[in-house]
Design a protein around this nucleic acid. Structure first.
Lengths: 264, 264
DNA sequence: CGGTCACGATTGGTCAGACCAAAACCGTGT
DNA sequence: ACACGGTTTTGGTCTGACCAATCGTGACCG
């Protein structure tokens, strides 16, 4: 890909390498743009393009003003969910594939949690289920607590890489399906008894294989639901921006859209 | 964060919205930068920053030359694996955790491959094993073909999200432990007979549970090797080799770092 | 003495115009 | 027909300037 090596790529790769290698640790401030551009022997415009990309990757946080500047940051897990959501929206990945990916991670996480969970973590998992039960009416809250349950199980796995990636996937999954298919659960109480409680029970007993089996059952049910809805093989690509606001701001969007519409 | 809405954000959001909404479909070419900048009422530098970001997101493919320009593209799955890789590169992830993550994905991939593999894909898996056998002397080539085997299995799973992410992780894994323990395999032929061949065999027979079990055995062996080497709990340090190649000397690097010390 | 507010310094954000380099087009010459 | 070199289009980079946000500072006043 870098057949014609560009200066901005060099800037990005250079800074990225320094950040990832620990030479530039999170929290440290970069020099002002003019100074850094001079140090790297590139123009400020070129440097800015690179900083923009790094900022978009979540490696830098840039602020204006006197004490502003670029600060090295640890990229949030949201960057993963953002890119997955992007894939989803462009129809490169189907709902079934994403669900499969989730299943691989979550089943493993449940199995690990059965062995490693601390009493505290076990308690947290149980708490999320209580909250789930309490919100039997509100489908939105129900969805939220369902994800909290998965998150608690993931954290109990003791593998942050696993849990953070999982959460990113769940966020992307939830963002893509948002509120449209909320009412697929006939009876939340029964759902918990049949699907969630066995997971908690197995993890509580420290039974690896049962934990795995229980989580597998949960995902079988989820995948069946996707199939019945007919959305398993088709990603929800073209929605309006408002629905897929994964990044959270539709602010500048409308402004620019109107600007684009005027000229066409 | 974007309290002051910036023009480049407006450009990114605007074009992103147009692409995701289907108004700009993959394959369509954007106007030349000068013209598009004029249409959006921004300067070319600002537009270029936006195009850079969109290109980095995988939504645009930019080429130089007379027939060059920005072409709308569907983002490849590699963007997801890249962000996941970025996630674990910036977190303190141990070799054991990474291996666990790989196991979750690869075991699932093997199981899926047993059901979905085409004859062609099966043949490709077998080919990689042949190459593995043929390179019994060269440890580097052996490593390479070992990864090719895993790649082939992953692709046979029929889930690009799964396979792409797996490959990204494998590359990172291999890069991290490249030099240290090349000679941990006593007898490659026996290794293949005990670990790899059962995987191929199970996938060939379409036996899901056997494929899963065989891949699990493979990873158990790998994790045991990591434990014996005592590097299972060691954090993955990223040794990015290529330093900033703009100035041509490492002088600016140290200057920058010393300049950074004063701030923060 | 302490709080408030305006000024100014610092820094990112944007703009304008120019030139360089890559790459495909096209006409010329053999 | 074919190779080749100029032409043209387009992205890549540089320079220098100005705008705007933000915070530090110190004068001013209660």
């Amino acid at each position: 890909m870098p057949y014609p090596p560009t200066a901005v790529d060099a800037v990005v790769e250079g800074l990225r390498g320094r950040i990832l290698s620990g030479s530039l640790q999170p929290g440290t401030s970069l020099p002002p743009e003019r100074e850094l551009a001079s140090q790297l022997a590139v123009s400020r415009a070129t440097l800015r393009e690179g900083l923009s990309i790094l900022s978009q990757m979540g490696l830098l946080s840039i602020h204006r003003g006197r004490t502003g500047g670029a600060v090295v940051t640890a990229p949030p897990a949201t960057t993963v969910s953002a890119s997955i959501a992007l894939l989803f929206q462009t129809r490169a990945v189907t709902a079934g594939q994403l669900c499969e990916f989730r299943r691989a991670l979550e089943v493993e996480a449940a199995q690990l949690a059965a062995v490693r969970r601390s009493p505290q973590e076990l308690k947290e998992i149980a708490t999320t289920l209580d909250a789930y039960v309490a919100s039997s009416q509100d489908t939105a809250a129900q969805n939220l607590h369902g994800r909290a349950f998965h998150h608690a199980v993931a954290r109990a796995s003791g593998n942050p890489l696993l849990s953070e990636t999982m959460m990113s996937l769940n966020d992307a999954f939830a963002a893509c399906f948002h509120l449209q298919h909320t009412a697929r659960a006939p009876d939340p109480a029964q759902l918990i008894r049949d699907l969630h409680w066995p997971i908690l029970n197995a993890i509580s007993r420290g039974d690896e294989s049962d934990a795995r089996r229980a989580m597998l059952t949960h995902f079988d049910q989820l995948q069946n639901a996707l199939s019945e809805l007919g959305i398993s093989d088709r990603a929800i690509g073209n929605q309006t921006e408002g629905d897929l606001a994964v990044t959270g701001d539709g602010n500048g969007s409308s402004r620019c859209r109107s600007a684009l519409a005027g000229r066409g």
